[in-house]
Design a protein around this nucleic acid. Structure first.
Lengths: 230, 230
DNA sequence: CAGTTTACAGACCTCCGGTCTTTTGACATC
DNA sequence: GATGTCAAAAGACCGGAGGTCTGTAAACTG
């Protein structure tokens, strides 16, 4: 697969891209936890040690991928929002439409959700301080961008309120996602007992409702307690 | 450590308890991900294969522990709530107090939070359908109990609203928890850059605010959209 | 063409969850 | 009390994980 050795910087960059692309392709067909360095390096046509020449750990690869996926999703969400939300509409309507667009925009970004849910518990471990700091700064920007989108379409929330909703939404997505990937045995349990199946949470619908509820709550709370008050 | 062989059923039960207690003790000092069968069996004074004679997998042990911790926490939360909430108080006040009690009640239950966050993504995998079903039924009851507590102190939410808030709260706790256990390198990054440190989410405070927001939202939404409407 | 650098592959390491095989302790029977 | 049986226990073992170490050879430099 590999044709010649990477000596120039641009060749090294190509290697990095191959690794990232291969990982992204794997994530399309399997959860984060199943992406192993062995299989990844096999698919990329490189030796494992060579993969680790370009990334300091498995987690560092996934983190970079996550960061990129985040930025791309945010762009799509931004576009979707301006289409869907009428700036002159009622607050309640804008909130609901935001929630709907938010949830729907994640539908084609399953791997982003998967990475998000693994972020704090897995990805942020086993990377150097440099990588951790760089990534966290980038995530700070992403979260700020999400807060900006919220503020733009729901200015009633205020800057602080919008920021908080952004953080809560991110946390919620990360918490909800794992529940939508039941293990085979759990699936069998669902099949066997309809009462259990009833408590499954469909990802998009649950997310939409939760975000809408969060926004409603944040709105009513900013209204009830004027800024500056604790 | 182990003195005689377990031949009677009650002796077997003692073995199970030793394993569960040892695991619980380990969880007091390390996160779920670091509890390994090797170390566990060493501490319990049993061979690894012997531990697996009593539990079908590492996850099965943790799942049973999680279930038990859940039930115990729910009891404590129930007691706390009747002390803290004035049934005659305003809805808003009851909601806020509920959120406060909810968050505070989790403070001494760090391992519960840890298990909760690992639940869907780790624990529910790698167990048989029997265990999965049994556990899920139990969790169904636990969630219903939480819903019951919510309904009791915030009857305005209605049964469905209370149930939904319960589910969302559980999801949120599971999503938030990992962010409160930063890796060493992440901690170093925080130390180096105050701007990064500012985006840390303190567990209890963030949780309290999110739950309060969720409740406010659910309340305003039930008020705005009468039951039966979609 | 000789020498130096270094990308790369593959053997190797430790640890994980889990299985398989062997040993041995506790009981029932003679 | 000796003997046989059966399951509890222990420990060797397995494949695969993430990651390191070392030898090789390809590309540059003089």
């Amino acid at each position: 697969m590999t044709f010649q050795r990477a000596r120039s910087e641009e060749q090294r960059e190509i290697r990095r891209r191959v690794i990232l692309d291969t990982t992204a392709a794997m994530l399309e067909t399997m959860p984060v936890s199943e992406v192993s360095l062995n299989e990844l390096s096999r698919r990329a046509g490189l030796a494992k040690s060579n993969v680790l020449r370009y990334f300091e750990s498995r987690e560092a690869i996934l983190l970079e991928l996550f960061d990129h996926a985040c930025a791309q999703w945010l762009e799509e969400l931004g576009e979707r929002l301006v289409i869907v939300i009428d700036p002159a509409g009622a607050v309640r309507d804008r909130g609901d439409r935001f929630a709907g667009a938010f949830a729907a925009s994640l539908e084609p970004h399953r791997t982003l959700c998967d990475l998000l849910s693994a972020q704090a518990s897995v990805l942020e471990h086993n990377v150097s301080t440099e990588i951790a700091a760089r990534y966290k700064r980038s995530m700070h920007d992403n979260l700020a961008a999400l807060g900006g989108l919220i503020l733009r379409h729901l200015p009633e929330l205020g800057e602080e309120g919008a920021w908080k909703v952004a953080g809560m939404a991110a946390v919620f997505v990360g918490g909800l996602w794992p529940h939508t990937n039941p293990s085979p045995s759990m699936l069998a349990a669902y099949d066997a007992d309809p009462a259990l199946a009833a408590m499954r949470m469909p990802f998009i619908e649950t997310l939409e409702e939760a975000i809408a509820t969060l926004i409603s709550g944040a709105l009513s709370r900013t209204r009830l307690s004027p800024p500056g008050r604790r």
